[in-house]
């Protein structure tokens, strides 16, 4: 049975294997390579996208489960040429080293800041669980706080 949903505002239909994780639809069928494969078991968060505004790990979301959902990926986060404040904060703090996990980190942070617009260190410790193998955590923490500040004054 075909499944309909949107990705970054574009209507799409899927008629394939409903067991296939959303991650592979994004990367291999929708041509959106920004969402990364890291572990396949929902542990690392490199594949984080938004499903109806919530951060989910797309390696663990089967296509059969996304009927009528609105999916946002890193490619859909900016408003045209205007980067999202979290993307801006990532650049201002020069967070990325290799950069592989950062799309997932940014998507996780955007969803996190919606619920926790003025986070403490403990909020960040509890709310951000994505793995960064370069260990950019020190700068991620600063970027989250900077994004929160920028969004509060925007």
């Amino acid at each position: 049975m075909a499944v309909s949903f949107t990705i970054n505002g574009m209507q799409r239909t899927f008629d394939g294997d409903e067991e296939m994780p959303l991650l592979w639809h994004l990367r291999e069928e929708a041509g959106l390579k920004g969402t990364k494969f890291g572990c396949g078991i929902g542990q690392c968060g490199a594949c984080t996208v938004h499903l109806d505004g919530e951060a989910v790990r797309s390696c663990s979301v089967p296509m059969g489960a996304i009927a009528d959902a609105n999916i946002t990926t890193i490619e859909g986060l900016a408003d045209g040429d205007n980067l999202h404040p979290v993307q801006e904060a990532w650049l201002e703090e020069d967070v990325p080293q290799c950069g592989y996990c950062q799309a997932g980190q940014i998507m996780a942070t955007v969803a996190f800041l919606k619920d926790t617009p003025n986070p403490t260190d403990e909020d960040i410790n509890d709310g951000i669980t994505n793995l960064c193998r370069c260990g950019t955590y020190y700068r991620i923490r600063k970027a989250i706080k900077r994004a929160a500040e920028n969004m509060a004054t925007a």
Binding site: K33, E75, L77, L83, L91, P96, Q102, A103
Partner: peptide, 19 residues
Amino acid sequence: TKNVHGKAIVTGEPIFGID
């Protein structure tokens, strides 16, 4: 000097081998 590929990274451009 900031990462010269910073913008490509934060916007999800396909710059890695796996991409």
